[in-house]
């Protein structure tokens, strides 16, 4: 099958300096990507999911030529990311750093025209292309105002518009709905679908599982620099097999969590903080049979349970089942089943 983006054993190692006080530091090796191979087909919306620090942005930076990989190869639209970097850049429309990628002293239209010049669009076409994008994103009222006067969400929309300026066959969008309110995020996803309908291939990173579920044809889950699962959303959920998920919220000590993890039939437990309470995500084979023992164990360990319910399997549960952690930023590992 034809591929639009192909990664073959791609690895990236950083050597950041770790501070050990005011004057002391040591160089540490961090492997941000480990032997990643995947293929994205033309016309596909491909989701890249993972918690913060999983390696999503490093992968995107390699694909967009901002970073040189340490090993392996990758091609975008048939062009090699190291040997044909300018052709790769011409083939990609990328939204990477959100609102920070704009010149705040320029107006929306001036920003788009400037970036149009960088993509070698002839002067006569720059304004026309910029206006098309302004109209597509319904930013007409803001087009002639300096970006510094925009709200955060409006800046994100314009940054998304900037990614469309060269009408590239591949769109790479890194968390594009960050800071957007719910209706604006929905509108942006609708535009992504519309562009995909016109034949554009989309690589979309997010940590919002529901977004990936509604938008993406296929999904890769990435954790600690490795692709740990890759398939359609339905297949990924089906990969849970007979395993089901129960969520428990309340005041729950770590001893209580460990006791739950030790229960027969429990394969994994992930703990996270939600709105000032603790949430346990319990993956087990037969949730209904487990429920009485689960409540009994928690009560025996003086947990105050506010909410307990079996859940429909989501992509987040798939992540929990694979890693023993949730996607939330403040997660920590307590079980590896």
């Amino acid at each position: 099958m034809e591929t639009e983006i192909r990664l073959s054993h791609l690895s990236k190692t950083y050597s950041p300096r770790q501070r050990k006080g005011l004057f002391k530091s040591e160089v540490r090796t961090v492997q941000a990507l480990k032997d990643v191979s995947l293929e994205i087909h033309p016309g596909e919306i491909f989701g890249l999911l993972g918690p913060n620090g999983a390696g999503k942005t490093t992968l995107i930076k390699c694909l967009t030529t901002l970073l040189l990989p340490s090993a392996g190869d990758a091609w975008v639209h048939g062009y090699h990311i190291v040997k044909e970097e300018n052709l790769v850049r011409s083939s990609v429309g990328c939204m990477l750093m959100g609102e920070r990628g704009l010149y705040w002293k320029l107006t929306g239209i001036e920003n788009l025209e400037f970036f149009a010049a960088l993509y070698h669009i002839p002067p006569a076409d720059r304004r026309r292309r910029a206006r098309e994008i302004i109209n597509l994103l319904e930013l007409q009222d803001l087009a002639d105002r300096t970006v510094e006067t925009y709200s955060s969400g409006q800046k994100m929309k314009l940054a998304f518009g900037k990614a469309l300026i060269n009408d590239a066959p591949v769109l790479i969008l890194d968390e594009p709905t960050n800071t957007l309110d719910v209706p604006s995020a929905r509108e942006l996803r609708a535009v992504v679908r519309q562009l995909n309908g016109q034949g554009k291939t989309v690589l979309y990173t997010t940590h919002i599982m529901s977004e990936a579920e509604t938008l993406c044809d296929r999904v890769a889950i990435i954790d600690q620099g490795e692709v740990i699962a890759m398939d359609t959303v339905e297949e990924l959920k089906a990969s849970m097999g007979r395993e089901q998920v129960t969520q428990v919220e309340g005041v729950i000590s770590s001893q209580a969590s460990q006791a739950v993890e030790a229960l027969p039939g429990v394969s994994r437990v992930a703990i996270s903080a939600v709105n000032g309470t603790t949430r346990l995500t319990v993956v087990a084979e037969n949730t209904r049979a487990l429920l009485p023992r689960l409540i009994e164990t928690l009560t025996a360990h003086e947990a105050v349970v506010q909410h307990i319910a079996p859940q429909e399997v989501t992509l987040e549960d798939v992540f929990v089942a694979k890693t023993g952690r949730t996607l939330a930023q403040d997660t920590r590992v307590i079980g590896h089943g």
Partner: peptide, 18 residues
């Protein structure tokens, strides 16, 4: 400092022209 360096490095332009 303005956060636009990566945005311009995404473009297929030799930076010396810029």
């Amino acid at each position: 400092e303005t956060g636009t360096l990566e945005a311009i490095y995404l473009a297929p332009t030799n930076k010396l022209w810029l």
